[in-house]
Design a protein around this nucleic acid. Sequence first.
DNA 1: AGAAAAACTGTACCTTGAGTACAGTACACA
DNA 2: TGTGTACTGTACTCAAGGTACAGTTTTTCT
Lengths: 209, 209
Amino acid sequence: MSGKQEGTRERILSVAETIILQRGFSATSIDDILQNAAITKGGFFYHFNGKKELARALVERYLDEDDRIFAGLFAQADAQSDDPLQQVLLFLEQFADMMRTLQDTHPGCLVASFTYESQQLDGDVHELVKQGVLIWRKLLLARLEKVAALYSPCAPISLTAVADMFTSSVEGGIILSRILQSNEPLADQIMLYRQYLQLLFQPQWPSQP
Amino acid sequence: MSGKQEGTRERILSVAETIILQRGFSATSIDDILQNAAITKGGFFYHFNGKKELARALVERYLDEDDRIFAGLFAQADAQSDDPLQQVLLFLEQFADMMRTLQDTHPGCLVASFTYESQQLDGDVHELVKQGVLIWRKLLLARLEKVAALYSPCAPISLTAVADMFTSSVEGGIILSRILQSNEPLADQIMLYRQYLQLLFQPQWPSQP
DNA sequence: AGAAAAACTGTACCTTGAGTACAGTACACA
DNA sequence: TGTGTACTGTACTCAAGGTACAGTTTTTCT
């Protein structure tokens, strides 16, 4: 494994992701990728057996990168507070900030993109996507369980659904941001999720006498 | 305008929408549509000048249909209560129910699908999509303004962002539902949005002495 | 009934893209 | 010095998408 290979493979993946998020998987030709990645067809097929294998590698890379980002933000949040609720709130705040300050509008989410082209992809790619969503659910759920143990929610809820609401807010926010061509809606939606958690787990007022 | 034309044109649109939501726009060939709509290539091009014009017609049809559904649900809700907050809450409840009881998993949203293939489509299609999102924002915002006039929100918010949260919850919920292959997550996310509104506009407890 | 417009059918054509094959080259590393 | 890795470059096949258009049926109007 020389540095050269890793560089080229990574470059193909990076370029492919960018184009696919703009045009969609099916509309992206291998030739498009070749041109932007400054590589030849032979080189591409040296690294990937075909377009479907590229898709698989893209999802894997995307989910890994996402894990890393979330882990980093949670580590930051954990360093700032010991309270489980505060940790989640800080995480969301920092994540929203990160999204708001992106250079361009958010490029989009590969998971969502592939979800709308599922029939073009192998079943195992869909399985990967599903596992990704379940990992995000698990990540939030573990945090929310700790929160719920300390602050009882002031309304009946399914913690799993509340955990999924993170993914939903991000995916929904990304769609809004792409359509409205600004990162504000995405940041707003993450912050509204944060506010929902705040309201849900706010200390109960004592009942009236 | 004979019934036959309307029938054929509508059949093409209906079939095209179904296939496009499954495979994506670019991955859907005109031949695919022809086979499922039982029409020939010539017939297709009699109705549409090409694939891009089909896309345009699909979005227009989709947004119209959506308007009709939302108007119907709000009319139902308005008949059941005079309170603006209750009306929104009833609307969301009924909408969630409608989604939950769909025969198959939700087919997907054309707006989201096209958002992830924007570069394949004409600029005016993107403009239509944008107008659609702004109509949904306006629809909710008008309701929320009435609510906010009666019940002051218990936290600082942008009403526009809260209105957008409806679209975000639905789009995010649809993605979750498609990936997890169940309509529950979509219904859950709509109901969580409902709960957020409930918590946000709940009557304030009197402050402690 | 008959003309004219509308609603198609059928087919031929051109282009593009996916994927294959394979011969040659540059470079590291031992 | 040689051997494997990581490519480049070219040339090809096959399938499909999109388009054009000439011809045919059906409806409509008078």
